[in-house]
Amino acid sequence: MKKSILFFAAFTAFVSLNVNAQDQYFTKTAKINFDASPAEPIEVIDAVNNEGTSLLNVKTGDIGFMLLVKSFRFERALMEEHFNENYMESTKFPKGDFSGKIDNLSAVNFTKDGTYKVKVSGKLTIHGITQPTTADGVITVKNGKISASSSFSIKLADYKIDRPKVVANKINETVKITVAANYELKKK
């Protein structure tokens, strides 16, 4: 008896966690770009990651991004090595992620073509440090396809990413991040 109640409780909880699939959109090719070049660049420091995973729930407004830090591609191989080894410590902290919500979900009509300005707030985790973040973004609906993009800036110090004095004039303390995702309906 005791057991069956427990099972039932666990079962309902489990089922309810599996959010209605019709509302879920996803992509595994979200593009995340960052630029840490200083105002007067000696070398341009930018990288792109085309293998970001993103989920969007059109009903609840939940939106999330996740990526492997090692999948950022730089122009210079040595820069990529230093990025992983010295700055991001990507063996220790392999992933970066954002999970949050669209604050003004009512402003978006996912069934009608158009461009909608949104505000997103949530938690951004980089280098093992989680910080509350807000960003302005745009959701575009075109022929039933949903895509999202956003651009925001972070401060390296907020995420305890070490920027030694010798490179202080080569790397910008404020890093500009842009994300872009084209979603597909999640089947399952």
Binding site: A13, L17, V19, L55, D62, G64, M66, S99, G100
Partner: peptide, 13 residues
Amino acid sequence: GVAQPDDLTKMME
């Protein structure tokens, strides 16, 4: 639980 971003993280994982 449903609305928690932590679940979102789990789902993404």
